[in-house]
Design a protein around this nucleic acid. Sequence first.
DNA 1: TATGAATGAGGATTCATTCAT
DNA 2: CATGAATGAATCCTCATTCAT
Lengths: 214, 214, 214, 214
Amino acid sequence: MDSIFELFRQKVENNEKLTPKMQDILEASLLLFAEQGYSNTSTKDISRAAQVAEGTIFKHFGSKENLLYASILPILSQSLEDLIPANLLSNKDYLQTVSFSDFLRQVLPERINLAGKNLKIWKIYLTEYLYQESMRDNLVTLVPKVAVDELKQIVTLFKEKGELVDWPDEEILRFIISTVAGYVISQSMGFSSSSQSDTDIDHLIQFLEKGLHP
Amino acid sequence: MDSIFELFRQKVENNEKLTPKMQDILEASLLLFAEQGYSNTSTKDISRAAQVAEGTIFKHFGSKENLLYASILPILSQSLEDLIPANLLSNKDYLQTVSFSDFLRQVLPERINLAGKNLKIWKIYLTEYLYQESMRDNLVTLVPKVAVDELKQIVTLFKEKGELVDWPDEEILRFIISTVAGYVISQSMGFSSSSQSDTDIDHLIQFLEKGLHP
Amino acid sequence: MDSIFELFRQKVENNEKLTPKMQDILEASLLLFAEQGYSNTSTKDISRAAQVAEGTIFKHFGSKENLLYASILPILSQSLEDLIPANLLSNKDYLQTVSFSDFLRQVLPERINLAGKNLKIWKIYLTEYLYQESMRDNLVTLVPKVAVDELKQIVTLFKEKGELVDWPDEEILRFIISTVAGYVISQSMGFSSSSQSDTDIDHLIQFLEKGLHP
Amino acid sequence: MDSIFELFRQKVENNEKLTPKMQDILEASLLLFAEQGYSNTSTKDISRAAQVAEGTIFKHFGSKENLLYASILPILSQSLEDLIPANLLSNKDYLQTVSFSDFLRQVLPERINLAGKNLKIWKIYLTEYLYQESMRDNLVTLVPKVAVDELKQIVTLFKEKGELVDWPDEEILRFIISTVAGYVISQSMGFSSSSQSDTDIDHLIQFLEKGLHP
DNA sequence: TATGAATGAGGATTCATTCAT
DNA sequence: CATGAATGAATCCTCATTCAT
């Protein structure tokens, strides 16, 4: 199953064009998986939505499971890259001079926005993660390890500058991620009465600043 | 996690309305739904595990969906009741005198412990909540509305006493729940290197205190 | 897959009645496998011929492969038992006194007749034997070992009496079986111009007698 | 068994009408049909093995069935020619002078050797012959009629010389073919404990001689 | 000549559910 | 109350074949 994804990634990276039908299939399956969940979506559903014969799906992706990987993995890793402020990370001077507070203010709104947009894909990821042993390995290991490591570097840096409490990196990161994730999720579920306003985010940042102050 | 199953078993066994076979079915389905997920569990699986004819399931519960409700709803509401510090809530004097910090310290460890034990059931709830339109109505409305309202009262009370920032109740509650949930989930997944220690929880409480301080 | 057959054999042996539908399925599948071959027969074909829902087949037999075993193995082993002159074998006195020539004359016509009747089942057996690795083990080992051993005893006995050439048992047995099998097969295929007459069989017996005379 | 494939390859390669791809297809299909059987081999299998696009197969052979004919028929007829001692048949003087015993001794070992080598191809033939109505006509009529007629001539000749019993040609031929076929088959299946020795074949010839002696 | 994308009917098998006993 | 035989629609997947390039 690595092979299909490898092959798929190569195709994409080499700009070898996926056939139009393959793209239709990927789009349709992504949409349906997000709407109804992976296991509630039949390959026939997908073939109908993509206006394609059912056989075509298997010709290209081999199995429904492979199709899941092919459709969500590229997006998930793209999404992860977007969520990590890579440009800032590489700019050591910037990180040395900026305050934790300003850093959050510059970085978080954009991340929250992006996270909200990809939330449906992460929902698919989550659902499969929860119960599918086989998928857990593929998805978990493949995706988030790198991301976490990069974020820990930032935490360490602000700790060294004395702007963050001296707790373990994992804990601090967990507090930040929990808080942001909680916000994004509640937003997307329409739990908050007010549509996301600047004050919401302002509160969130204040909460993190104060909560993690030494 | 054993505890809640234990408790459930007792409840079920003491309920004279339920025949022994019905009890077996409820126990088996709860276990299997928790292990494999609702849609990955067939009624045949359940009948095997409960040592019961497949027909018997439908005789008593009518449909697989009904069986889901019958097995998880009682537990979910029980779990919710456990999570809400009802006895404290009713004790107005106590709430007036205790500091927010002490309140968290007295209340959170127990809640975290309980939440961790019930996590598997909440996992079932979550999965179905995410995709099953029909179930969403049944489960959502039925379950957590009450709980949230009760918790908001506590938040309001501490806000009035000047121990919490003057942000909307929902926001404050969200910060608290996100943080606690994040902790419980990461614990149960074995993400934290250290097994849950008192310092972990101490940090968590400090984080909330400081973060929500006026 | 052993289990299904074991279970099936027990049912049959205990005269626990197979349900009427199960019998219909067995009869229909036997017929169709014989007519069209195993892999050219779909489970839908069988369900139609047996006037049964397709699910019923799998309810009882689990898989198409199991159905093959369940339908042909009992017949094959019965057929083998019929082919071996068991009653004569147990009668040592008879075997000591009878000549090889008379023995063939008394035994062969009946065997040839029986073999011809079961030829279609043996055709199924043969086809699967030729290409299906998995089936080879099940069918080969399960079926003919015993039979061969019993027949060798007879050969040994006539050799000791000086009525058969002193060649290895396997060789002598092979000559006999090849000759008889060749006759039965050519009969059933209508290759022989004359329908099977007594002279045919008489020639066959003369051929064996003379060919194997010391 | 390698030899016939070798021979086939040479034939195919020397045939200028066939493109290299067609040659690859024929070789690959022959190999796969022999190994797995015709109906267990998919055109995709063949295209993979021949390193050819699936479409190419149909471009040249039109259907899978045609491919079967194209691949095995030339070999079968070649094999038949090899099995019939054509050079001896044409040499009437030789046949008049040689004894049946010597004839067998000169002819059989070579035939047995050849038959063993081609057995896999005959296995394909047999399997299809058993169940495929459509193929039966194509294969049966096309192939063995000539062969049988030629062999009958030899039988007739030896009968006239008084070296064979006066039974119908078909019967005598059947005894011979059954015996030889039985030997070849049991050899190729590894049933015989001793690898094929000269004494085996010697016994076989003695058996035929004595059995068919007037 | 050769490709390989696309097809859709057909394959075995699983599933939740019904019903007579 | 409990059974388990029976159902048939739905599921994932395979197959031989077609066709535009």
